[in-house]
């Protein structure tokens, strides 16, 4: 693994950053006076805590190599799918199709990723799950809200399993001169998107005026989005040494994934609003679940995967 020294440098860098971020949060808390700043700091602290979680989990999983990362993302998908399907339309007649989603489709998708069967994992959920799950529901003979039930289940699978599985799929990209360093691509993607996400929040708070979609989320503004994408590009370029891309390429890719991530969060906000919840789950008390923390990464991952595969992959 010629990526080893870079991984160690990155890990130390990230840990140093998180220590500083944690200390900063504690210092801000002492100094905070108003209700508004307290709320801001609570949200900030929750983010830092979830970053610690992500770093520890990613680091632990990568000790076990590709298998570790595939298992980690399969578990994350499981948790996210559970949060998603808790809120979607369903009746007793869907029991078997939902069981299949959790215990058959999800494991098969990740197993296909692990054996690198690109031709099948690319269509497994969009084609096979899409056609077969409604059959499992229809055989039970319950017409009430049928289309809504099967559509919402399929949508949940597409986002929380299909899209999410493209993050570990990055490990099998055949990039010339990059063998053994693929995990750095995942680290780059996650760090860039998380930074853009939090900086979008900061920019929105500082100079946000025009809401992107007022009825979906008041904290998301066009000024924040612009600031988020610019910040994401800067972070992406600064971390460009992790990737096999040139400066211009890395800037374009960073812009693409941050924009996709921000829009993904917006889509998930729309669903949360429709279902009448503030957060998807309760991973951290009062601060949301797996889906809330990873919606942006999940939306960006398939596009990032396919663009990189199309333009850079050797095979």
């Amino acid at each position: 693994m010629n990526g080893q020294p870079d991984i160690v440098v990155l890990l130390f860098g990230v840990i140093l950053f998180l220590v500083l971020a944690t200390v900063l949060g504690a210092a801000l808390r002492k100094w905070a006076a108003t209700e508004w700043t307290m709320e801001f700091i609570d949200s900030y602290t929750a983010r830092v805590t979830s970053w610690w979680g992500m770093v520890v989990l990613l680091a632990l999983a990568s000790i076990f190599g590709r298998l570790g990362l595939v298992v980690l993302f399969a578990l994350i998908s499981f948790a996210a799918l559970r949060e998603f399907l808790t809120l979607t339309a369903k009746t007793r007649a869907d029991h078997w199709s939902l069981l299949l989603s959790f215990f058959v489709i999800l494991p098969i998708q990740y197993w296909l990723i692990y054996i690198d069967w690109y031709g099948l994992y690319s269509i497994f959920i969009p084609v096979y799950a899409y056609l077969f799950l409604p059959i499992a529901s229809a055989l039970r003979g319950e017409p009430t809200r049928f289309l809504r039930r099967v559509a919402e289940t399929q949508w949940g699978l597409m986002v929380t399993v299909f899209a999410a599985s493209h993050v570990p799929a990055l490990l099998w990209l055949d990039l010339p001169g990059f063998a053994g360093r693929e995990i750095l691509l995942i680290a780059w993607l996650v760090i860039v998107i998380q930074s853009a996400d939090v900086l979008q929040y900061v920019w929105s708070a500082v100079c946000g005026r025009t809401p992107v979609a007022e009825n979906l989320s008041r904290s998301k503004t066009w000024e924040g989005y612009a600031g988020g994408v610019v910040s994401g590009v800067i972070v992406g370029v600064l971390l460009g040494w992790l990737t096999p891309f040139t400066v211009w390429q890395v800037a374009l890719l960073a812009g693409m994934v941050t924009l996709m991530g921000l829009m993904g969060s917006l889509v998930m906000s729309a669903i949360k609003r429709d279902k009448g919840v503030r957060d998807w789950g309760t991973l951290i008390a009062g601060q949301g679940g797996f889906t809330d923390r990873l919606d942006a990464v999940v939306f960006a991952a398939p596009i990032f995967y396919h663009v990189v595969r199309f333009f850079w992959s050797g095979s």
Partner: peptide, 18 residues
């Protein structure tokens, strides 16, 4: 909340919902 969806009457395997 939700438990009737996790294990409806007549089913054996519970769904892992929240």
């Amino acid at each position: 909340a939700n438990l009737n969806e996790i294990l409806p009457k007549g089913e054996v395997i519970p769904l892992p919902l929240l």
